[in-house]
Amino acid sequence: MSTLLTVENLSKTYVLGGGWFGPARELAALTDINLTVEAGETLAIVGESGCGKTTLGRCIIQAQKVSKGTVTYHPKAGGDVELTSLNKRQIKPWRQDIRMIFQDPMSSLNPNMRVFDIVAEPLRIHKICKGRELEERVISTLEKVGIPAEAVGRYPHAFSGGQRQRIGIARALVLDPKLVIADEAVSALDVSIQAQVLNLLEDLKAEFGLTYIFISHDLGVVNYIADRVVVMYLGHVVENAPTEMLFERPRHPYTELLLEALPIADPLRRKGRKTEVRGEIPYLGNRPVGCPFHTRCKYAQDRCRTEKPALRPINGTAQEAACHFAETLDLKGAYEDAPAKEFA
């Protein structure tokens, strides 16, 4: 597998307030993020609400300026494109390759445009085709996501949430992209619809040869769709591992905490589980020194309060974690009945 995208030392700081009166406050939404996306994989980014997942997605796709660090795209044709250093005009061609699916099916479609025009808009902007060709491309893309040709003249409000999400997917795919960033793409949908849309995303991935960055707070969904999972906490990557390894034996106490709250379909296994993640998320503005997780970690030692753990491969495996004791802690996975296997 080749690497499709590299994120290096990426930080994002929001400046709050700072008008004419009063000092500006800084909020570090992302701190020193490093990750790679391999061509053809589905990389999930998980974490509680407010940990910076959306910000990361938006920084990758250049919907927002990064404060520090680089995002580099590696097109198949070769060469490295440092997206973070491009201006608006320079980045435009690459916008065809990297596309986004939004969370809210209500606000992500322009209520004043017909479905046809919504999906045709990217083709028109990039002047890819027009007339019959444009029309055929739009309609065939819509049909692939399950929107019949008869419906293309309607306005978005005539559709259900699941259908709207399909339209959003069609808009992302009509440019024949390489990388699709889906930010909570199914979170706003009913559980039954979620499964349909997830299956659709799987099918489209195979058909178009896509790579996904799948942002979600729902580990159940992530388990279903992802090949690899990046766990974020307070703007840091705390664990990065293949899905199976992560669910089997997490290496970061925060991941364990998230898995603990994961509702398990089997009622026998669910016994004694909490359904809520315990503890308060500290405010990002007054970030704790040392390990960002130490205020909530039940394994925390003195060292954790002063020294920040680095993200590193654990025992030479593909699993990376940022915890001083990642190698030694025996953390519970999602399947507590099964004995934790060693991936040594």
Binding site: E121, I125, H126
Partner: peptide
């Protein structure tokens, strides 16, 4: 609004 962001990301 997301649909405006979407237009930006379309390259408009």
């Amino acid at each position: 609004e997301d649909f405006v962001t979407a237009a930006q990301l379309d390259g408009a």
